Amino acid sequence: MNELTSGIVSSAVWDLIKKGTSVTKDFLKNKLSNWILDDKSLDKICKYINNTPDVYLKSEGLLKEYINIDEEIQKTLEFAKYIKPTVSQNIGVVNGNVFGNIEGDVINNYNNSQKPKETNNSTFYLTDRFNEYCPIQIVKSYDVTRDICNIENESNGPVIKAKITMPEKVKQLPGCQFAMILLSFTPFINLENYYDENYNLEFSLDTSQSIKLVQFQIKNVQQSQFIDFPLENKHHIIPLAKMSSRDSWKEIKEICFTVFADDRYITDEIGYIKISGLRLTK
């Protein structure tokens, strides 16, 4: 991660912004300690974020979009110089645990928010952290407003229900238009332990007749999309190891179920998606 992006900045300040607290230069400097930014640049970013219109303060994703709007801010981020962190760490081996002493880059050095989530040999529902104050949202490329997905508890676990709207005029717009169900994780989640213990991603997908395909996507904190494939209506059980490498699972930022403005995905202006029991299982 050598570039300072709007996604990194929005993630760094979102917890403060959603409480209605202003971002200070010292706070931002501490949060972006892996990048070199002069005081003038930090002041510019702080001022811009603190003047964010209310319409962009509904979610971290919208805040990121607002940061993307300003060309001067983007240029400021582009000139930020990345500092590769180095540490000293004791390592050795006692009862299978590693201890001792090495210097340089540390692969498994995490702060509290980055530690691999413990599996406890149990099922992990990926919807657990979402509620009315931290909702699962429907993001539309053609509309700045976002709808909220309903989460209901049924016999097979939490169920995400979403109405997808795709006006015919949107299909005529240039570029790649879409509507997607977005699960955004702040802070990101580290699923390396689930990979190591051979867990599967499991869920059932049901859609209305108008929705033929749903694109399944997973992104890391750099907004790099390392999972991207179409889904059909059925019960899915997919090993994490089959989808991607171990290193991919350490910084999960977004899980998306996307419908593109294309007849291969949706044949009407309105459709419905139901995702049941989205979880990690053995």
Rank of each mutant, 00 (worst) to 15 (best):
I270S: 14
T145L: 08
C46T: 05
K171F: 07
N108C: 08
I138E: 00
I148E: 09
I181L: 06
T165C: 09
K58N: 13
S122I: 00
E132A: 13
S141G: 15
N150M: 14
E202K: 12
L278E: 02
Q74S: 11
Y199W: 03
K242V: 05
Q225S: 09
T21D: 10
P158F: 07
V221H: 10
K250S: 15
Y133L: 11
N190K: 07
E152L: 09
I252H: 11
C134N: 12
Y82T: 05
E232V: 13
D38N: 12
F79V: 14
T86R: 12
G20V: 03
D43C: 09
N190V: 08
D43H: 07
T5M: 00
K212C: 10
S113T: 12
I36C: 04
N233T: 11
I238R: 07
N156W: 10
Y56W: 13
S184T: 10
D228R: 12
S224I: 11
I45D: 02
Q172H: 13
V94W: 05
K47E: 15
S184G: 07
D247Q: 12
K84Y: 12
V9H: 01
Y142I: 05
G104A: 06
K58R: 13
K58Y: 09
K25Q: 08
G277W: 01
K274W: 04
D196Q: 00
E71L: 12
I227S: 11
D128Y: 14
V87E: 14
E72I: 08
I181R: 05
D38Y: 00
T5I: 04
G104W: 05
K18H: 06
Y133M: 08
S10I: 03
I83M: 13
R146Q: 15
K117I: 14
Q177W: 05
S6H: 04
D38F: 02
N153R: 10
G100A: 04
K212S: 14
V94R: 10
L191H: 06
I270T: 15
G96V: 05
F130E: 09
N233P: 01
E168Q: 13
I102N: 11
N97P: 01
K19S: 06
D263L: 06
I189R: 09
D43N: 12
S248K: 12
R279W: 00
S11Q: 12
K44Y: 08
C256L: 14
N198L: 11
